[in-house]
Design a binder for these strands. Structure first.
Lengths: 195, 195
DNA sequence: CGTCTATTTGAATGTACTCAAAAGCGGTGG
DNA sequence: CCACCGCTTTTGAGTACATTCAAATAGACG
């Protein structure tokens, strides 16, 4: 099993001894999520954080009209989880589904806490990880409030070129908070404008 | 100086010895922000996280048209900061301003890191603090995508009754991501509906 | 009282949505 | 190899939600 990617991901924020690395990876459970199948279903109990090593996942909530709202994507080297469910212990509010066949490394909350207690540097690592996520989430909130759908789409193209190729357009629309029809109209307008 | 509130805030997540508590509070700098004055201006360098003990602050970004978009409020027992600026070291993107005369306790990033290194339990505390913020931020993103302005306003009233009384309506509109005029129309509609 | 800011109201407009249908695209099986 | 099926994307007409701009009203403060 190749834990290189996740160890380098951690090493960008905190440094670990070799034995700490070995101890950590012992708690990871490799798992494969086939395209269009679900790693987590809203309503189920949820204890795992996932680190993607191949493929692509999406995390979304389903509203009362059955509409999907994508909260985040995860490509290799990204973490993804239903943090609300994990820290509250309540049933999941998110569904996590594979956009492509995806390999993940799973870490249960129990193991995460055990590791954090034994190697406090992991508290620091996860603190930094969550801080970066919070910053990204806040920027997205501000963008949603201050930019039009077209501006957000253009920004998305620049920021996540990978996802642009990997993910169907209606998923991008859902992430941007608009309907697929309207995204299509934005694209038509942009194509016309650049001719 | 009364550090009771902040110590109880911390104690809800991690337990500290008395000497750890004393060590921690030594790094706090009490400060008062007068109504309509700014604790932080966008563009300035920013190193402090603030804990509110009295009054109310708002954190907002100003877009290219000069419009204010409120990212968060902070009432007593809440933390507030421009996390992006703090962790990146870049100039602040947020402005933090007092809605009412407000007392805060300031903690610099340098001191925070020093404390975290010396008492690793603080890494855990701040990790949990940021986790809760991230969950709230994510839920707000989903709400903004799946609910109408009226639904979001009604939810706001239920969730933050304090702020409803403390904060002017145009600030609530800004937090909800709508114009003050439209909030006014929503309120008129609601008043009519409930008669 | 007068001034300043906050809130409301109204008309016109724009951005994004709904619904319906057509077109495109990939796979699968005959 | 092509016909068909399911799914994604596009297109169009009509509509709804929210904004803009302008002006009136209401409140707060010196």
């Amino acid at each position: 099993m190749n834990f290189d990617l996740i160890l380098r991901n951690i090493a960008r924020h905190v440094s670990l001894t070799e034995s700490e690395q070995n101890y950590f990876v012992q708690h990871l459970r490799p798992f494969t999520v086939r395209k269009k199948t679900q790693l987590l279903k809203a309503g189920d109990s949820c204890v795992d954080t996932a680190f993607v090593t191949r493929g692509c996942l999406k995390a979304f909530s389903v509203d009362k009209d059955g509409e999907e709202h994508i909260l985040s994507f995860a490509v290799p080297d990204w973490w993804i989880a239903d943090l609300y469910a994990i820290i509250s212990g309540a049933p999941a509010i998110l569904t996590i589904e594979a956009v492509q066949d995806t390999d993940v490394l799973l870490l249960s909350r129990t193991d995460q806490e055990k590791i954090c207690n034994e190697i406090p540097r992991f508290d620091k690592f996860f603190r930094i990880l969550v801080e970066k996520n919070l910053v990204a989430s806040q920027q997205r909130l501000i963008n949603n409030m201050s930019m039009t759908a077209e501006e957000r789409y253009i920004q998305f193209l620049g920021k996540y070129p990978m996802l642009t190729e990997l993910v169907p357009l209606h998923n991008i629309a859902s992430y941007l908070g608009i309907t697929p029809e309207f995204l299509s109209k934005i694209r038509a307008r942009m194509a016309k404008g650049s001719r």
